[in-house]
């Protein structure tokens, strides 16, 4: 974005970050020292396990039959990738991700505009909007579950008194999407609001003077200017949605083929105690997420947030 920003003061290369004295070496040492603990923890808890899980995924390793542990190459991958349950879960996850992120983008943009522009009760709106973000997902999921449970729920009574919606596949998926959307719209809205704040008021005034209608100002000025913020928000939410677990666990427990890939992995691991298969799924999910991130960054040109670290 820097090319659109007019520098208000002349750039002064003789000042700035470099002004730290006390010698470069000491600074480097201090920097490394300060980062070391965080880096070590992150690497120990993610780096090593990733490698370990790749190794596990190449083993036959069922905790119920630990004696039969054996290196079997890519057999686990063949097993998983030829299994219809995996593909069903993959399809469900993709579906939930695409639909909920799409709805979130629209509602999130709406909420962002409301929070940014409302003339009355701005503090209240912003406060209240944070509640879905902050609330424990499981709590919210229980609220939705009871709301849609036959007899118990007010929503069930209102919309479908005769049906047990959570036990039917399509309605159950819709409710999962609803729960996801409700919880994450505020987060999306906050990210988008930060983007909105980057649109200078003068720019909108100029657009009005140039004869743009409200809708044109939105599509021709606001959206393009905040495109980086939108892409970052989409990236974050897509990756997050792909991990969907809590809501499904509470709402349907994966019944009626509503399980996500995370549910499949959990079931194989904790319920089935099959570490080999569980790890294989772990690796596959990791790869899927990596592909999504790659697509966002390469195809849409999403800039990694904070990626320009030291500058600015």
């Amino acid at each position: 974005m820097s090319h659109t920003v007019q520098q208000t003061r002349p750039a002064r290369p003789d000042k700035g970050k470099r002004a730290v004295s006390e010698g470069k070496k000491a600074e480097r040492k201090l920097g490394l020292l300060l980062c070391a603990p965080a880096a070590l923890v992150m690497l120990a808890v993610t780096g090593y396990p990733i490698v370990y899980s790749i190794w596990l995924s190449l083993q036959r390793y069922d905790l119920r039959f630990p004696d039969q542990q054996k290196f079997i190459g890519i057999d686990n991958y063949v097993t998983v990738l030829t299994n219809s349950y995996w593909w069903t879960a993959f399809g469900v996850t993709t579906l939930i991700t695409v639909i909920s992120v799409a709805i979130e983008l629209v509602l999130g943009m709406g909420l962002a505009l409301v929070m940014h522009r409302t003339l009355v009760m701005r503090g209240l709106v912003r406060t209240v909007a944070l509640i879905p973000y902050g609330i424990v997902t499981v709590v919210a999921a229980f609220s939705w579950r009871y709301a849609w449970t036959q007899d118990t729920g007010y929503l069930a009574r209102l919309f479908a008194p005769e049906a047990a919606l959570l036990t039917e596949r399509v309605p159950a998926l819709a409710i999962i999407v609803l729960a996801e959307v409700w919880k994450t719209v505020p987060f999306m809205a906050l990210l988008l609001m930060a983007g909105l704040a980057l649109v200078p008021d003068d720019l909108l005034k100029a657009a009005s003077m140039d004869g743009a209608s409200a809708w044109q100002r939105f599509t021709k000025v606001i959206i393009p200017v905040m495109k980086p913020a939108i892409l970052v928000a989409l990236l974050f939410r897509t990756l997050d949605a792909f991990r969907v677990f809590d809501n499904i666990f509470v709402l349907t427990n994966g019944a009626q083929q509503t399980g996500s890939v995370s549910m499949q992995t959990y079931n194989n691991l904790i319920k089935g105690l099959n570490l080999g298969i569980g790890s294989t799924m772990s690796v596959l999910i990791f790869l899927a997420v990596a592909v999504i991130a790659f697509l966002f960054i390469k195809v849409f040109g999403t800039s990694a947030p904070g990626g320009d670290g030291g500058k600015r």
Binding site: L30, M42, V45, I50, T265
Partner: peptide, 30 residues
């Protein structure tokens, strides 16, 4: 501060922020 590996650290944290937590469940469990 200016130090080597800064960008790498930023990159690693970003990776972890996007990381599917379920992928760690199996190895961490074991």
């Amino acid at each position: 501060l200016d130090f080597p590996g800064k960008q790498a650290l930023v990159g690693v944290s970003l990776l972890i922020a996007m990381f599917p937590q379920v992928s760690l469940v199996s190895p961490l469990f074991e």
